[in-house]
Structures are given as structure tokens and as C-alpha cells.
């Protein structure tokens, strides 16, 4: 066989992968059928492919989906339903708070001035004693301590 006509290794490699034109595939195929040297090289390439075929069948099953989802859910702006729902609820809450603040402010301006005065001073709050450990009407509480603040 005239070795000058032999396809180079690149072409034989591409032939194994069917990555040649139809004309080249036929040409190389005919040559391999006649040339013992190229036939041997071709056989080695096919054997190589068989080894890779075995490697493809190895079990390399992994499951990284939960880990990655956990990482991504920690990121701001993650594309998840939970984050979108949280953002929506947050926006609703902010809108409601804003509306309440505006309403109170407007109400203070629009409502007529009245003589209602509320003393939020510490002494007034102390008279209410909401967290006192002494129950209301207890006989152990001295009368004077009930009015430690100024009355309105």
C-alpha cells in the first residue's frame, strides 16, 4: 500500500467521530479496508473509544441540588417563590404603614382643636402601674404612692 496516500492521524481520528464530509468518509473507509497500517491505527482508536464507553458507564451519581439551593436561597435577589412572596408581603406592610402615617398626620391637621390632653409623662404612666407586682387594691400599698405624679 502506498503510504503517501494514507490519511494522517487527525483525519483518522475525525473519521472515527464521523466528523468528515461524506466524500472523505468514503475515501478514508476504502483506504482503511486496504491498508493494514491504517487499519491497525483505526482499530486502536476504536478500542480507545470502547474504554471511554466503559468510563461513561461508571456510577458517578451525585446529588448537589439541596446544597446549591440552600446556598442560592441565602443570596439576596434569589429567584425563588419564597423570596418573592416575602418581598410582596414586605411591600404591603410598608404601604400600610405609610398610609397610616399619612392618615394620622392629616387627621391631626383636619380635626378641630379639642381640650383633650393626655399626659404621657412618666409619673402618669407610673400611676397606671401596668407591670406592678402589687395587685390593684392591695392593702399593702400605701395611699400616697398611688399619686406620686401630678393629676391633670
Amino acid at each position: 500500500m502506498n503510504r503517501e496516500r494514507c490519511p494522517d492521524f487527525d483525519k483518522l481520528s475525525a473519521y472515527v467521530d464521523y466528523e468528515l464530509s461524506d466524500g472523505e468518509l468514503g475515501e478514508v473507509g476504502s483506504h482503511i479496508a486496504e491498508c493494514a497500517g491504517c487499519r491497525r491505527t483505526y482499530d486502536r482508536l476504536v478500542q480507545l473509544g470502547n474504554v471511554f464507553s466503559v468510563m461513561r458507564q461508571e456510577s458517578t451519581e451525585i446529588n448537589i441540588v439541596p446544597d446549591i439551593e440552600r446556598q442560592l436561597n441565602r443570596e439576596p435577589g434569589a429567584r425563588s417563590h419564597g423570596t418573592r412572596l416575602y418581598g410582596r408581603l414586605l411591600s404591603y406592610g410598608l404601604a400600610a404603614s405609610l398610609a397610616l402615617a399619612v392618615g394620622v398626620n392629616l387627621g391631626n391637621h383636619l380635626a378641630p382643636e379639642q381640650e383633650v390632653k393626655i399626659d404621657f409623662s412618666f409619673t402618669q404612666a407610673a400611676q397606671m402601674a401596668p407591670f406592678s407586682f402589687i395587685p390593684p387594691g392591695s392593702i399593702t400599698l400605701e395611699h400616697a404612692t398611688c399619686f406620686i405624679g401630678t393629676r391633670i
Binding site: V51, V54, Q57, E58, S59, E61
Partner: peptide
């Protein structure tokens, strides 16, 4: 070190190759 086996479910020829 790779999880699983290389030869599970293969024919004898593939087992030899592997």
C-alpha cells in the same frame, strides 16, 4: 475513590476492558 462500581451491569467483554 469513585462512588459505585465500574463493572456493575456490564457484559464480560466490558468487564475485561474496564
Amino acid at each position: 475513590s469513585v462512588d459505585g462500581t465500574l463493572t456493575g451491569g456490564m457484559d464480560p467483554e466490558h468487564q475485561y476492558v474496564s
